[in-house]
């Protein structure tokens, strides 16, 4: 005969077994989930060194950093002036030009549209003298700030340092 006490005991045992089982399954699933995260060799490509001596004023180059394109623009006085003048405009993500560059001659931005990740076109294609994203028409100015179109944020400025006058290092070494 099954008593009330037996029933309670069984309920407890079923619950305890299920709980242990669930924790076990969760633990076993973890390595599979983590196997999708960037692997050690991907993480190791943390920095890119760029020689700046060949970039003329008003010109830009696109370099890969961590598999992503980075624009390096050698800004002309006009482009610098345009960016500074627009500091006063209302913007989606207000930022001063001075806070986005380390040396006002060099604009270094991640060239991935903050809308859905397309690469914007070179400087001079957008409405504000800057970059136009061809995918859904976002316009960035000469400081890489979003001015028009669906993108929510400015082009991010990756961590970068000038090793010497002609050498730029993008990214931070990990570890």
């Amino acid at each position: 005969m099954v008593t009330q006490q037996d029933d309670n005991r069984r309920d407890f045992l079923i619950l305890a077994t299920s709980a242990v089982g669930a924790v076990g399954v969760a633990g076993a699933v973890w390595p599979f989930i983590r196997s999708w995260s960037p692997s050690a060799d991907v993480l190791a490509q943390a920095t890119t060194e760029v020689n700046l001596s060949n970039i003329q004023e008003g010109q830009m180059i696109t370099v890969p950093w961590q598999g992503k394109p980075v624009f390096i623009l050698h800004r002309s006085p006009d482009q610098i002036a345009a960016a500074k003048k627009d500091d006063a405009e209302t913007m989606r993500q207000p930022e001063k030009d001075a806070d986005r560059v380390k040396d006002e001659k060099w604009l270094v931005v991640l060239a991935l549209c903050t809308h859905l990740g397309c690469v914007p076109q070179p400087v001079g294609t957008g409405d504000y003298g800057g970059f136009l994203c061809p995918c859904h028409g976002s316009h960035y100015d000469t400081s890489g700030r979003i001015r028009k179109g669906p993108a929510p944020e400015n082009l991010p400025v990756p961590h970068h340092e000038f090793k010497d006058a002609n050498t730029l290092v993008i990214g931070k070494a990990v570890g």
Partner: peptide
Amino acid sequence: VITNLVSALPVVGQDLVVWVWGGFA
């Protein structure tokens, strides 16, 4: 473009899309 849609999710979006890519792009 399509995987970037994942990044629209609040809080976890950015980390999730890196996880889906297995890299930074």
